[in-house]
């Protein structure tokens, strides 16, 4: 079937569903609601705790879903599958905005035993997804596990300020803050974290040579292994490594990644490994990795829709005309029947 009549967003959605399905992911569909209590219990996994609530017919307070992954994990034991994809709307206030928006997301989740192959497969699909959205793209990979371990050593009641400065690559304010709280001995390690930024393998090699990162070698060697495989299978120049793509939620615990497409100012793809969320939902012997594509943003790119329809003048009887229309349809044509005087 010719899909050129679809707008860019719908075309991408269709191609991504095809991609995920052909790589063995099964579609999971869900309704728009979740109990409000579910988000209250798991607030620390939401980037923004504001949700749209409404009263259900039974009196329960319901919420329009601000996140899909949490609902998939909640239902994991009943799903009976470990490779899932979805194509769903979510409702949340995007970062830096003041109003709720309906955001159309399509994504995958792998829940199970995570080995190097599964990790590379998910990253490979992330790259393929970005390429389907736009030829000029970048995938930025990060490792939040290392950051969490360093932050844990600081023994602070809140690490939000440090995460904020890391996200901003803001070494000047971060150094001043560490000095103010008497943790100036950590300035050097954060300087390295902020300055690491560029080619995946080169960045990991740089970290492997740093004494301050010796204890994180297990993470780094696995990252290097992944980088080597990706170099062989994807457009490696479009992949970079840096530590600044982190969030303040406790959602992710290990590898995380963010994708950009030229022409869109916000991340079009984001994902990572979220064992913390599984653990909170009593799935303690599994790991999980996934990503979501923000399809709503694709509308900001130039539309590629091209509808070429034949104009057919209606100069026949109604019966003959509808027979002619059906004949054109069966022949695969696109057409519009117009009146003689149009």
């Amino acid at each position: 079937m010719d899909i050129n009549f679809l707008n860019r967003k719908s075309k991408v959605a269709l191609k991504l569903e095809d991609l995920f399905s052909r790589f063995g992911f099964d579609k999971y569909t869900m309704n728009r609601f979740e109990t409000y209590a579910f988000y209250l219990e798991n607030e620390k996994f939401l980037a923004d705790s504001r949700v749209i609530t409404l009263q259900g017919a039974g009196g329960k307070i319901l919420a329009l879903k601000p996140d899909v992954t949490m609902s998939i994990v909640k239902n994991y034991n009943m799903l009976g599958m470990n490779k899932i994809y979805y194509n769903e709307p979510i409702f949340k206030v995007p970062h830096g905005e003041n109003e709720f928006r309906e955001i159309h997301q399509i994504g995958i989740e792998y829940i199970g035993e995570l080995d190097t192959y599964q990790t590379v497969e998910v990253l490979n699909l992330a790259v393929k997804s970005l390429k389907m959205i736009g030829e000029d793209y970048r995938l930025c990979i990060s490792q939040v596990g290392i950051i969490r371990k360093i932050l844990h050593k600081l023994e602070l009641s809140s690490v939000e300020t440090i995460i904020k400065y890391l996200r901003q690559k803001n070494i000047h304010d971060l150094s001043a803050y560490l000095e103010k709280i008497g943790k100036q001995s950590y300035i050097k390690i954060f300087e390295i974290l902020i300055s690491i930024n560029g080619d995946f393998k080169t960045s990991i090699n740089q970290l492997l040579e740093e004494d301050l990162f010796k204890e994180y070698n297990t993470y780094l060697e696995e990252l290097y292994n992944i980088a080597q495989i990706l170099e062989e299978v994807v457009d490696y120049k479009k992949i970079s490594f840096d530590f600044n793509h982190i969030s303040s939620t406790e959602y992710y615990n290990d590898l995380i990644f963010t994708g950009y497409v030229k022409g869109i100012s916000t991340p079009i793809l984001s994902g990572g490994r979220y064992d913390n969320l599984l653990y909170k939902m009593d799935i303690k012997d599994k790991s999980a990795l996934g990503f979501a594509v923000n399809l709503s943003e694709i509308n900001k790119l130039e539309d590629t829709r091209a509808v070429l329809r034949k104009k057919i003048v209606n100069d026949k009887s109604p019966l003959e005309m509808i027979q002619e229309a059906n004949r054109l349809f069966e022949a695969g044509e696109s057409f519009v029947v117009i009146r003689k005087d149009e």
């Binding site: 830096g96 996200r167 901003q168 690559k169 803001n170 000047h172 304010d173 600044n244 916000t266």
Partner: peptide, 11 residues
């Protein structure tokens, strides 16, 4: 005040 998600590279 702008509350934007940007890098702050230099003072």
């Amino acid at each position: 005040e702008a509350e934007v998600d940007v890098y702050e590279l230099l003072d």
